[in-house]
Structure formats: C-alpha cells, structure tokens
Design a binder for these strands. Sequence first.
DNA 1: TCAATTAATTGACCATCGTTCAATTAAATT
DNA 2: AATTTAATTGAACGATGGTCAATTAATTGA
Lengths: 189, 189
Amino acid sequence: MSPRKSVQKELTREMIMDAARDLFVSKGYQHVSMRQIAKELGYSHGSIYYHFKNKAELFYALVEKHFELLDQKLHDVLKQKLDQKEKLKQILVGYIQFGLNHQSHYEIMFLIKDEEVRNFINQGGNRSYENFAQSVSLLSGKELKVQEIWLLFLSLHGFVTHYCRIVNSYEEVRGLAEAHADFLLKSIH
Amino acid sequence: MSPRKSVQKELTREMIMDAARDLFVSKGYQHVSMRQIAKELGYSHGSIYYHFKNKAELFYALVEKHFELLDQKLHDVLKQKLDQKEKLKQILVGYIQFGLNHQSHYEIMFLIKDEEVRNFINQGGNRSYENFAQSVSLLSGKELKVQEIWLLFLSLHGFVTHYCRIVNSYEEVRGLAEAHADFLLKSIH
DNA sequence: TCAATTAATTGACCATCGTTCAATTAAATT
DNA sequence: AATTTAATTGAACGATGGTCAATTAATTGA
C-alpha cells in the first residue's frame, strides 16, 4: 500500500528472481508479464523496474545462473570414473538432458531471437560452449576439427530444440536421446 | 474512408497475404502487427479479421504455401541427373537452404511454440517430413531405421535453427552447410 | 535530536498489441 | 425500388512493457 515499506519487507533481486523463475519455467518467457510477477510478490509492477532494467534483463539474470549449472554438469561428468568413450557419450546425453529439464531457460540461452534479449546473452553462452568443445576434443581420442565439434553441437541443439515444450522432461525421451548421441558419435569415429 | 468500397477495390485474401508476407519475412512474426499490415494496404485493421480469423491463421495461410514449396524443392532434387549419393547430399543441403532462405516461415513451421499457432500446424509439417524421410530412405542404399532418419532430420533442424536470424541468407553459410551434410552422412554410411 | 538527503515503492499514465462488434455503406438479390 | 447481404470502419476492451512524479521510510550529518 505504501511507498518504501519497512526494511524487513523490502523487495530484493533474489525475491523477484525466485518468483519469476517459477512463472517463466511453467509458462515460458512470452507468457509471463511483469504484472503477474509483481502480483505473485504482492508488490506493484513498477517496483520490479527499480531492481531490473526490464523484462529481458530479469530473465537473463536467471539464465546466467543456469549457464553455471550447465558448466557444473559438464564438470561432474568429466570427473566420473568412466572410460573416455563413455564420458564422451555422457557429455552429449547430459547436454540434451540439461536442455530438456530447463526448457524455458534453454529457450533464452539458445533460441530467443528478440533483439532485446539477444544483447544480454553471448558471454555466458560462449563460455559454456568453449567448455563443451574442449571436453569433446579431449575425449574424442583423435584430432577433431573445430568445425566438426561445432556441427556436433548444432545436431544436439536440434534435438533439444525440437523436444523443448513438446515433452515435459528428459525422461520422456531418454532412449531416443541416447540413440541420438550414438548416432552422432558415429560421425567422429 | 467508407465501409464497403467499390468492388474493384475490395480487399482479398491474396492482397493481405502479399502484404503480410513481406512484413513477416523482414520483421518476424512477433514484430508485425495487424495494424501494420492493414496500414500497408490502406485499410483498417478490422478488415483483416473479415478475411482471416486471427493473426495466427493469416500466418499459417502463408506457411501452407511454403510447405508446398519445400515439397517442390525435394521433388526437383529427386529428378536431377545425379547418382544417389549426390542426390542424398543435395536433399540435406537443400533442406538447410530452404530453411535459411525462408526464415520467418521456417520459424512458424518448426519453431513456434505458441499454443494458438501450434493448432494450425502439423498436417503440412508431417506430410513434408514424410516426403523427406521416404526420399532419404530410398537414396541411402541401405536399410535405415526410421529412427535414424528422424535423428538425421533433427540434426539438420539444429543447423537451421541456429543460423535462422543470425544470418541473412543461405549463401553466408553455404560451405558450413555442406560440411554439415557430409558430417551427418558419415553416420549412415 | 532533528532536518536534509537518499532509497524504495506506488499507481496513474503512455503507446502498443490482438481482437470484437455495432454501425455504416456498397453490391447483389428479389 | 425495396430488401437483403457482404465488406469495411473505427471505437472500445483488456491486456502488455515501460516511465515517472509523488510519496514515504530509512539513513545520514550537524
């Protein structure tokens, strides 16, 4: 009701991000409004603009955290006790798994074309891709052209893109995802 | 200015589609408004709703035609004088070419997640895919699992998806597209 | 301690969107 | 010529993302 609430009740970036995450994940970027997020929090929509420049920046703040998660996932696979061939497959499958279990964020990371959102991306995306590429290169056992790794990535990307929003979780396409990984690995062996 | 203009100046579905096509292709589905289309035509925005139920249906009317174009393209490749291996590659490359030279429509055909638009699709998309799959199967020379063809398609799809809107035409990535086709063909040979 | 300053929140406001629909007028039908 | 039908208009609706003066709490300094 009143401007400037007592300090215990002050809105924080974290509070906004928590509310926004749920909505974005369940409804997708386009179908969540700033007013909905504010309502969820019990604040006016204007207040969000005090903490985030606009909707795209708010979403990107969430996405950044998810890039870290993707990096973490890769790291986890690498330190598993598996032979190289197995690890390599795990990386590919793990990438698909990540994409399908964080659909709304994957959309923003790699799918959204909006100029606005576009401007925020790229740093995180490139870093994540570099990690991916280097790991594949190391584990493949043979000299791979950078181009080949890129094409491999695009092929994984196609799988995720297609099943994003068609499917509700990775589990629904686990078998096909593994087949896709095998299919692609044939190209580099 | 007046309702019900003289019959020579009557608005037609074709007129609307022509104006809309240009706008959609240059700006993308999301960034074209019904008012813009109407303005382009010199009519009020309401008039479009007399000819099309809504924006999604208008767009889908355009997309249907592009599916026919895609089918035509496939047909053209098939009747070329090439050995099977060459034809197969041409199909893959041709698919990418089509996607990148009709970006805004490709988006709707295979990328858009909006419920509204979703409902209109599928018939055309499935038929086109069936054509693609059957051709690949015929030309591959060996018994391919349906699953393999599907994964091949998803891999092509990833390429198109990524370069859609990053690039302005197929020409800019011709070399890479051909490399992608070669890369994928290694998986089924 | 209390005035001045700063920080956080509000909600009216703007321009835009897709869509609906009563009113209007030209064309077609009787 | 009267009536019916078909096509077009533009005001209106309920949304959207975003801005900003006004307001009030917290903080700072004298």
